[in-house]
Design a protein around this nucleic acid. Structure first.
Lengths: 226, 226
DNA sequence: TGTACATCAGTGAACGCGCGTTCACTGATGTAC
DNA sequence: TGTACATCAGTGAACGCGCGTTCACTGATGTAC
């Protein structure tokens, strides 16, 4: 990843084994869930003794933290590169489908981030920073050509509660849009990934798109005047 | 629960201890998460020896299954009684706030049902049946006075993929509404319960209401004609 | 009302298991002169 | 280019722990006559 140019053979070897450990970790998470992640089991799968892994990760928590960090980074990268391809739909719709693709490619990676948290675990600051970057990407995309909508109580509230947006210049309506975008996407996606649509017979992709289209479609001037 | 009238003292005692075990189980889930549920730990907390619990539950899985069943039943009951109070808002809005209240009262109970599933666990049929009841309650509520909306591709799809609705007479637009209702509520609620809004500074209740209001508000005749 | 017996709740010992983690060690790889 | 030393990857034994679960047993509670 970093400084591959000046890396010694030993450093490159270390990096490779660390990556290999993570690969097996993901594989194990996929079959037994994140909370059952075991260093010993990973070692066995790699044909090594358990203690060997302590050369690479100080303990179990450090490995999990790095998995979470990687997941956030991967999602942020995906969003960033999608946003840059504005021509091919870098707007909210493009981001939505990028997230969906990313999540379906590896459901456990999505769920590790946005699924039920392990009680007591607290992510380090640098991870919080990446999730803030993701929020910024959403705000950027939500800023482009927002459809006119009547002002809601939430818009009003957000005008005074926008710390989470940092110094992003987005107006309240855009903040609202970004939050709706996030929760709608997550609503469909997390139920789909958790298997709650299994056996229901309809295509989750259409529901996903419908929720997205609804967010992007225009509204009557003011619902209060009806 | 059942047959309290003809229950012998011994039966009543058994039922009481079973209930007490479940209470401690919920308490433990709240602090350590569902995957770490341990019969031994519950026994210790109750001042009993570990093997004693095997008088009441055949094994760990049976206990977890009953917790899940109870959770589904409790949610279904809450929805049902809310739906009956039509005067006080038994419609979708009423149900939404009932779900939210129910979830906030005990976040782990909501997450046990709708959170990240334990890989490999498969719920028995009677639980699936309760979740079908919940779906029916949603469909009933969604059927009442639906606002006119332009037909979407999803509506079209649902007309031909409605097995999950059983023999409910709801038209496609209502099916669509019920699904949107479900995913939007879950989207806001699950992110809130998982702590993803923590530190963002806005009031999740307002976002919840905004998502709901948007679902219930009218639409322009046809967005394709703009 | 009292005795004999059956039922059942709960105990303590024991099983095998896998976990995270520490430690002293071996042997291979890289570095300095 | 060759030798002496330092670094470091990986091992095997060991630690204490808590887990689910089985089993033979004790003692209390309920039942039948």
């Amino acid at each position: 990843m970093a400084d591959t140019g000046t890396a010694t053979p030993r450093e490159r070897y270390r990096a490779q084994i660390r990556a290999e450990i993570k690969e097996h970790a993901w594989q194990q998470i996929a079959t037994t869930g994140a909370s059952a992640l075991s260093l010993n089991a990973i070692a066995k799968q790699m044909g090594m003794s358990g203690p060997a892994l302590y050369r690479y990760y100080a303990n179990r928590d450090e490995l999990i933290t790095e998995l979470i960090r990687d997941a956030y980074r991967s999602l942020a990268d995906t969003l960033r590169s999608t946003a840059e391809k504005a021509a091919e739909g870098g707007g909210l719709a493009g981001l939505a489908h990028a997230v969906r693709g990313w999540a379906l490619r590896d459901p456990q990676r999505y769920l590790l981030i946005y699924g039920t948290p392990v009680p007591g675990y607290h992510a380090p600051d640098d991870i919080t920073a990446i999730s803030a970057q993701i929020m910024t990407l959403l705000l950027d995309a939500a800023s482009a050509a927002p459809p006119r909508r009547p002002e809601t109580p939430l818009d009003h509230h957000l005008a005074a509660h926008r710390d989470w947006a940092g110094d992003h210049p987005a107006p309240p309506a855009v903040l609202h849009r970004a939050l709706s975008f996030w929760t709608r996407i997550h609503g469909v996606l997390s139920l789909e990934l958790a298997g709650h649509f299994a056996g229901m017979g309809f295509d989750p992709a259409l529901l996903f798109t419908a929720e997205l289209d609804d967010l992007l479609s225009p509204r009557p001037a003011d619902p209060l005047t009806r």
